[in-house]
């Protein structure tokens, strides 16, 4: 190493191996040794938490897990946390998906959380997938009873929870999770339900912020970070919290690498190399 100019010089070169091995170790480390790194809580997460806290038992909440299984790590744990809170509040939950993978992801969420004594068809329902993306959203908003069968093929008329769903205005809250351009959901549901909360990929935060400040979106949870904050508010640390340990470690590692890389670059530049 000394032949090549020391550790900083070695790291300063674009050695992908160092980055990949470092990230791999730091991702796995918290899985074996939970670090319990403290978490600061964002004001928007608190706002979302309070919104759900204010719901009355029996209120109708509409949920759309509109993301792909590959994006589970980005938004799935946050959806788990928020859904857990909804079941704890004993509100009635109607799940409808505008992404083809949505219904199965909804099932995954329901399997991973504690739904207590909630009964399918009475306290919650999975209406499945409605194809057509934004047009499907508009169609659902226009008439939520357009869907005739749930995910399991049961006629909607036979489900007790759906007897109280006559129009989109019956829902007190709409929660959607997406990892892309969130405009379609906001365009179609804003103004139709009293409050909208989104669980979104951190990469799309800047796209969502104008709608939060404009009032079209009530609040948002920025991916797994939001999920960890939500778990902290519920005092139920879960998957999101453990992922945050790895995130904090990895991002610190990245920042160190960037600093080292820049020191090396400027040393070379000042030497005239």
């Amino acid at each position: 190493m000394s032949e090549k100019g020391g550790l900083i010089e070695v790291l300063g070169r674009n050695y992908r191996q160092v980055i990949w091995i470092g990230v791999l170790i730091l991702c796995f480390l918290p899985a074996f040794v939970p670090l319990g790194i403290p978490i600061s809580i964002d004001k928007l997460t608190i706002k979302a938490y309070k919104c759900i806290e204010e719901l009355e038992p029996g209120d109708l909440v509409l949920v759309s897990p509109d993301f792909t299984p590959g994006m589970w790590v980005e938004v799935g744990p946050a959806m788990n946390a928020i859904m857990q809170h909804l079941f704890m509040k004993k509100v009635r939950i109607v799940i409808v998906s505008f992404y083809i993978d949505g219904p199965v992801l909804a099932e995954k969420i329901l399997r991973e959380i504690d739904i207590g004594d909630a009964k399918y068809g009475v306290d919650y329902v999975n209406l499945g997938y409605l194809p057509g993306m934004e047009t499907a959203m508009a169609a659902f908003v226009e008439n939520p009873r357009r869907i005739e069968y749930d995910y399991y093929g049961t006629p909607v008329e036979e489900l007790e929870i759906m007897k109280d769903v006559k129009s989109i205005g019956d829902f007190k809250l709409y929660i959607f999770a997406c990892v892309t351009w969130p405009d379609p959901w906001i365009r179609q549901f804003s103004g139709k339900v009293p409050k909208i909360i989104t669980v979104i990929s951190p990469a799309a935060i800047s796209l969502v912020m104008p709608y939060v400040s404009g009032g079209q979106l009530y609040s948002m949870l920025p991916g797994t970070k939001g999920g960890a904050e939500y778990e902290a508010l519920m005092k139920r640390p879960g998957v999101a919290t453990s992922i945050m340990d790895a995130t904090s470690l990895c991002l610190t590692f990245v920042m160190l690498l960037v600093i080292v890389g820049n020191i090396s670059y400027w040393r070379k530049r000042l030497r005239g190399e």
Binding site: N14, W20, V23, P69, G70, W72, V73, V254, L257, Y265
Partner: peptide, 25 residues
Amino acid sequence: TPASIAILCFTGFSEISGLYRAFRV
């Protein structure tokens, strides 16, 4: 689902590698 998550997780390594180059002052 695990296969999809595994494939997407690879992008994290590439993103960090790209970030390292992008933040060269």
